[in-house]
């Protein structure tokens, strides 16, 4: 009987400690905001002296340091990014779209598609004026040209390019993830990118705007006749010569389709974009 009581006491003590920890974890300082934020596979961690440690889409750890400030110890040269970034090369049209939304498109100095590809006015005008350079297609980057335009940062989805970019003394950030980004991550990615340009306020405004738009799409579907009948069947993908690549069910595209009242046919598949 005594040993049973002792067992119970021990277990109770352990779970009281665990509960105390949980209470501590749940309470965060409201004045300074969260010191750690996770956006899908990206993460943001505030460090002392206005520095920020980030984790990119490939799990690489980099540190953002205000210009003129000594960087914290423990980070390699190619993992230190001075902010605000003034000259950026971007591989992805999505990243460049976010730069426009953040009001930082004038920092763009290099792209990986020719002029005819672009529909963003600022990019077209920038290429016409020579401010934005075409550095070659993604499978054939002209690294000599990349070096001459002297970017502070390269935003890329190509993991292989990182080693070459780092050899040129330029930090690189991988902006895609192993798993497809869900809608929440895709939307809040603007907050991640905003850190490089000190545009957090613009990012918050953008995220709020997108959240309202998503809500309105969802409400439109719920209030419409579509809700009562069979849902349209939808697939989202690209057709190539020998295969068809589709977005998996965990992707933002699949989530948007479901919110808009569609029946995404690949919602049972999970994986990379």
């Amino acid at each position: 009987m005594k040993s049973v009581c002792c067992c119970k006491s021990l277990l109770i003590a352990c779970f009281v400690l665990l509960g105390a920890w949980l209470l501590g974890a749940c309470s965060q300082s409201p004045e300074n905001g969260p010191s750690f934020v996770n956006i899908g596979e990206f993460s943001i961690k505030k460090l002392p002296e206005n520095c920020t440690e980030i984790r990119d889409g490939a799990g690489r750890i980099l540190v953002l340091v205000p210009r003129g400030q000594k960087p914290p110890k423990g980070y390699g040269k190619n993992r230190i990014i001075e902010t605000p970034v003034r000259r950026v090369v971007a591989y992805s049209g999505f990243n460049i779209g976010i730069l426009k939304v953040l009001g930082a498109i004038d920092t763009l100095v290099g792209v990986t598609h020719k002029r005819d590809y672009w529909t963003i006015d600022e990019v077209v005008k920038g290429m016409d004026s020579g401010r934005i350079a075409y550095i070659g297609e993604t499978n054939g980057i002209d690294f000599e040209k990349l070096k001459t335009i002297e970017p502070d940062l390269v935003l890329t989805w190509d993991a292989c390019a990182i080693s070459m970019i780092n050899e040129l003394g330029i930090p690189g950030v991988i902006t895609t993830t192993g798993e497809a980004m869900d809608l929440n991550t895709r939307m809040r990615f603007a907050r991640f990118l905003a850190l490089f340009f000190n545009r957090e306020r613009e990012a918050d405004e953008y995220v709020a705007k997108v959240q309202n738009a998503i809500k309105s799409v969802k409400d439109s579907f719920l209030n419409s006749d579509f809700d009562k009948g069979p849902r349209p069947k939808v697939i989202w993908g690209d057709i190539y010569e020998k295969r068809v690549m589709v977005e998996p069910g965990n992707s933002w595209a699949a989530e948007m389709i479901e919110l808009a009242g569609g029946d995404y046919l690949f919602d049972d598949i999970s994986g990379a974009s």
């Binding site: 750690f36 996770n38 961690k45 799990g59 798993e179």
Partner: peptide, 29 residues
């Protein structure tokens, strides 16, 4: 919520507790 636990592979337990572990107690308790 695999994304919360995947960084445990390289961050180390203490660093993971102070970041992901504390931030998402509902998923990590």
């Amino acid at each position: 919520s695999e994304k919360i636990f995947k960084p445990l592979n390289d961050l180390g337990l203490i660093e993971w507790i102070s970041t992901y572990g504390k931030t998402y107690p509902g998923h990590t308790v």
